[in-house]
Simulated assay, not measured.
Amino acid sequence: MSLRNSILIIAIILLVDQFVKIYIKTNFVYGEAGQIDVTNWFKILLIENEGMAWGTKIPGEYGKLILTIFRILAVFGIGYWLYDASRKHSSRYLMVAIALIFAGAAGNIIDSVFYGVIFDDSYGHLSTMFSDQPYGSWFHGKVVDMLYFPICEGHFPDWLPIWGGQPFKFFNAIFNIADMAISTGVGILIVFNKKAFAKKTAVESYKPSQE
């Protein structure tokens, strides 16, 4: 698979990811008030987080800035990994996986870098794009999430220690297209590990790549 095709995958995912985020951000109110039930197990619900899994934050005044800079550096590293894999004519599995991970990471970085100065907040009203009163500053934007799959919910059995009788939901995470791309890329590396990292024979290495 060529580097050009990998870049095409990245561009498509970024466009879809940002289109969905901007649409949701400007047409949904934060939290339950803006929820749409697509099915019993699939809902559209706008939330925002600091950019880490499960809404985790790095404490301190510069925690968000540190996270954003770290993620930017990580994307540069992933970009070099993609270039190097292309130069070595690596397998299609590896190229697709890296492209997906790169696109997902870049998509969330766009939120973190720009959204704080582009949008106002979504609490109790619809957000405005290019607002005169943005909710944040450069590198301090929040990542927009909206895909919610509470497939089943109920209560833990009373006899269960600690959690007995408490409510639960599965699947409780809310995520976005970029998160899906990262998870899919990592999944490919795990499930198709041998094919992704297969080494070409000496004869194959001298043939032009057909991928």
Rank of each mutant, 00 (worst) to 15 (best):
S2A: 05
F70S: 15
Q133F: 10
Y115V: 10
D37F: 13
F102I: 13
G63D: 10
A198V: 02
G34T: 09
P161L: 10
Y62P: 00
T184I: 15
I101C: 04
N49S: 12
G141F: 07
A11G: 08
T56P: 02
I109T: 09
V186D: 04
G77S: 04
L126V: 05
T184D: 02
K195C: 01
G141H: 03
I22W: 14
I58F: 13
V186N: 02
A74G: 08
Q18T: 10
Q35D: 05
D179N: 11
M52V: 11
V186F: 14
E211R: 04
A198C: 03
F19K: 06
K25N: 06
M129N: 08
F28N: 01
I177A: 11
W163H: 06
S183Q: 09
C152K: 10
I66D: 01
G185W: 09
L65I: 14
S91G: 10
V113Q: 04
F102V: 14
L147G: 02
A181R: 09
I12N: 03
L3C: 05
L73T: 12
A106E: 05
L147V: 09
M180I: 13
I162H: 05
A178W: 07
A196F: 06
H125W: 07
P167G: 09
F171Y: 12
L147R: 02
F119C: 05
R4W: 13
L65N: 12
A99C: 10
A181D: 08
F197V: 13
Q166N: 07
F114Q: 09
G165C: 05
V20I: 14
M146H: 04
F149L: 11
K169F: 00
A99L: 03
Y80T: 08
W54C: 01
I7D: 00
F42K: 06
L8E: 05
F119M: 12
V203Y: 10
A202K: 15
F130G: 07
W138L: 15
I10Y: 12
T56E: 02
F170A: 09
D132K: 15
G107C: 05
V20E: 00
A106V: 12
M146N: 01
A105E: 09
R92D: 04
M1H: 07
G60W: 08
G77I: 00
R4A: 13
S131Y: 14
I22P: 03
A53S: 13
V203I: 08
G164L: 05
E50I: 00
Y23I: 07
I36F: 06
V96G: 01
F175C: 05
G63M: 11
V20P: 02
K195T: 02
S2W: 04
A198T: 06
G154I: 11
I9V: 15
V75H: 01
Y206N: 14
